[in-house]
Structure formats: structure tokens, C-alpha cells
Design a binder for these strands. Structure first.
Lengths: 239, 239
DNA sequence: CAGCTCAACTTGTATTTACAAGTTAATATT
DNA sequence: AATATTAACTTGTAAATACAAGTTGAGCTG
């Protein structure tokens, strides 16, 4: 219903190219159309193209080489998209399934958000809470809890987080981009709840990440807590 | 001896501003001189200033606000600079000391570098190996091992890594910038060596990060392995 | 004194133009 | 057939110019 605010051309081009890469139109090692070609194709000038490409470089989608071109790096796996690195081979996406443990629903905050203090406007609204479990070869390997403040997010409850990244939905549906954040990492001993989720027989070491995502919407943050059983698969990321 | 290759003006400005921030000339919350002021002061044009500022934004040093200015965020603590988050208060830099466990020296690789395969040119040269321990309130909290290929790094052995970040030295002395990388995170049980370094009485959980740093120098990577005792302090980072 | 207006600042976005430096492949030469 | 040269491509860097949109504070008005 509400008309999407017009995006500047460099952001439109950025989204087009990003989608082309994530949809597999380009594979790792492919070279994107040259800057001059993108100018012609999208009726913008070279600095505009370069600004879109710079964002793709920044996020790890492409690598530029002077004189050669913009080389696709594939799907980066950084802050938003966590993945696992097997002890013998990398795990493909197809072996990782997501189970919604508790669907996103409106609830109240605890005193804080995973140890991060809340600001006054956050405290005044509730938050959406979502819990997911990621499973590899029938073995649960990570469990994550997400808290998103209930501020101007129409139809948030009905969105499907099984197959899509929260980051993606925030960016495309609400024009809210993660621009940075803080994270705390620690190695803990699995308590009973975690042992249950991961089907563990003993209290072994578990990796825990608490994160506060800072966004392009001023004063709007969201929070996540990830538990990861790294006995068989390390938690892998690019940066 | 060797003349430093001339840097483009936007990189010179970037280094100046970055140093001003890290030296404390600007504190968190301060506003940098405006883009127009920086143009006048440094005799460059606004697109050049903006390119320098964009890199500072990218790395987390500043946050820009339209109509207001470029707000200093303080020293970001991301990929290169790890820090600790206390359970009751953040730890200032002054409480963290670094002890060189084994000074950088030339040695041979193992089969790989912390699980990351080596390319042929890396295999043919040895690497510098450096081991450091970080101590908070007399308690060792992290231990890290760094491997750097012996490729065109004059006077590397004599550099002081106690007070300066490896990233900094690489960037300023060799114009080698970290442009990305991969990392694996896992929670392990402390073995005897780790227990010894951290003064532990039992085999408690320890956080381990294995990292491969990709640099602006084609084909040049370096590697690190960090062990962190997060019982009292989580490992903290911004991104 | 409070509220409004608006000028002067700030950053955001974009075009146009130009040259530098790296890469590639076609062509010429030996 | 191998090697060198060079044209035509690529990205990297930079200036000049213009307007959009957000913020701030001085000055005016009631």
C-alpha cells in the first residue's frame, strides 16, 4: 500500500547486481560487465556505477582488479550469514536446514537485550522474538534468538524467516540496513536447555555470540544471541 | 632507503584523519572539520575528501549525518583489534598489557596454516611466527599466534609488536592492507598447553579463532590463531 | 520570552571531463 | 613459432560543477 520511497540510482543498481550475484546469475570467478557497460545498460554515469560497485566490494560480493574487471566472489558469509566449516569439507547450503523453534511474536523485553542496554524508546515498545535452530545432517548445530523492537514494522509477524535472512527482509521490505554493530563472543559450558536443543549427553563447550545490530534507521537496533555447537563444525565467516 | 611510493591524496588524507582519531585528537562524539573545511586545509576537492571519509566510515571510525557532520566513533574494535568486554564494565586499554611470548622469527610452515591451505609460493618461503599473550589485571586472557609469509618484508624481525598492531605496521610500513579474510570460530576444551598459558586449574571452555587475512597485495595472506579465556571477559568486537 | 522563518551551514547524490595505470589480445617482426 | 609492440579495453584517481535534503542558529514577530 504505502508507496516505496524512491531510491537513488546507485542503490537501485546495487540491489540489481547484488540480486544477480545471490541468484547465481554470476558465479564465483565470473567478471561483471565493465563499468562502461553498466553505464550504458542502466543509463547512469560512471561515478554512480562505481558507488554501487564500491558497496558490493565493501560487503565482499566482488573484488576489483585494475585493468581486468570486477570479479565475483560469491556469497560472502559475514555478519549476517553465518555458516559452518566442516572438519573435512565445507558444508553446502543444501545440507543446512532451518527449523523455526518459536515463530516471531510480540513480547516484552527482559531488563536488557542479551546484555546490551536498551534505550528509552526501545523500552516503551515491546519486541518481536524469534527462535531458530539450524540443523546439519540431522544434527542441530546452532540455535539463535533474535529480538527486534516493535517500531514501524508492518506485517512483521507474517514474514517467513525460514528461507530468508532477517537482514534481507529488513533491507528490502523496510529499507533498514545493518551498518555495523557490536558483538561479544564467549565459550561457555552447555546448560540443560542448550544440551536439550543440541541433543548433547554432557556439558561440553559451546560457542555463544551476543550481537547488537546498528542500522541505517536512527535509534533502531536489533539483537541476536547465537549458540553454536562447534564440536564437528567450526563457525565460519568471511569479513 | 627505498623510497616510499607516492600515495594518492585521498589515502594521505585518510591516514592523517585516522591518526588524529587514534591519537585522541578527536574523541567519541566530536565532529570532524566539514568536508569543505578539509578541502581548504588539504588543498583537495570534495570528491577526494569524501573518498577518504568513506573509508573511515567503512572501518567504523566515523559516522556521517546529513546536514550535521562527521561524528567520531572512537577506535573501532573489529577484525584487527580484538578487545574484551568485562562482565561489569568495559576494560580500558590501560588495563590490557601485551607480553611477547615468542618474538617474531623465521621458521617453516606446518602442512597448512591453522587449517587454511597454503599456496605454492607460500610453501616455498618460510614464515615469520610471533606469539603474544594479553594480560588483564595480571590474568592472561588471550594468547595469539601469527604467521606471516616471508615475502618482501624488510626489517620485519626488528619491528616491535608489543605496542603496535600488526595491521598498522603492515599498512604503514609495507602498504599492505587487510581487505578481508576468513575466520573459523570454535569453543574447545583447554588442553595442557592452554591451561598453562592461562593459569587454569581445570579444562574449561576456551574460545578459539583461526583466521586467514587477505590483503591488498595479490597472493599475500597472513594467518592468526587466537585463544581466548572468556570466563571473566567476553571477546568484544564492533563490525 | 516563545515560536517561527530563513539564511547559511552541513552531507547526499550525480554529471561531465580528464588522465593514470593495469590487462589483454591482435598484429608485426624476427 | 616465438617475441615484442601497441591499440583497445579495463579500473583507479581527481577536478569541477550543480542541486537535493538535513541541521542549526540568528533574527524577527507576536
Amino acid at each position: 500500500m504505502g508507496k516505496k520511497k524512491e531510491l537513488p540510482p546507485y542503490k537501485i543498481l546495487y540491489e540489481i547486481l547484488r540480486k544477480q550475484i545471490t541468484d547465481g546469475l554470476y558465479s564465483k570467478g565470473d567478471i561483471l560487465p565493465s563499468e562502461n557497460e553498466l553505464c550504458s545498460t542502466h543509463s547512469v554515469t560512471r561515478p554512480t556505477v562505481r558507488k554501487a560497485l564500491d558497496r558490493l566490494v565493501h560487503e565482499g560480493y566482488i573484488r576489483k582488479k585494475q585493468g581486468k574487471g570486477s570479479i565475483v566472489q560469491g556469497q560472502p558469509q559475514g555478519v549476517g550469514i553465518l555458516s559452518l566449516s566442516g572438519t573435512t569439507s565445507a558444508i553446502g547450503k543444501e545440507n543446512l536446514t532451518t527449523k523455526i523453534v518459536i515463530k516471531q511474536h510480540l513480547t516484552n523485553w527482559d531488563e536488557d537485550a542479551f546484555g546490551f542496554p536498551l534505550n528509552d524508546s526501545e523500552k516503551q515498545v515491546g519486541c518481536y522474538r524469534l527462535e531458530r535452530l539450524r540443523i546439519v545432517n540431522k544434527q542441530p548445530v546452532f540455535y539463535d534468538i533474535t529480538l527486534v523492537p516493535n517500531i514501524n514494522l508492518p506485517r512483521f509477524v507474517s514474514r517467513n524467516f525460514e528461507n530468508r535472512s532477517l537482514f534481507d527482509i529488513m533491507r528490502t521490505a523496510y529499507q533498514i540496513e545493518v551498518i555495523g554493530g557490536e558483538q561479544k563472543l564467549m565459550a561457555i559450558t552447555a546448560d540443560e536447555k542448550i544440551q536439550k536443543y543440541f541433543n548433547l549427553k554432557s556439558a561440553q563447550p559451546i560457542l555463544r555470540l551476543d550481537r547488537k545490530m546498528e542500522t541505517s534507521k536512527e535509534g533502531f537496533f536489533f539483537y541476536s544471541q547465537v549458540y553454536c555447537n562447534t564440536a564437528d563444525y567450526a563457525l565460519y565467516g568471511t569479513f
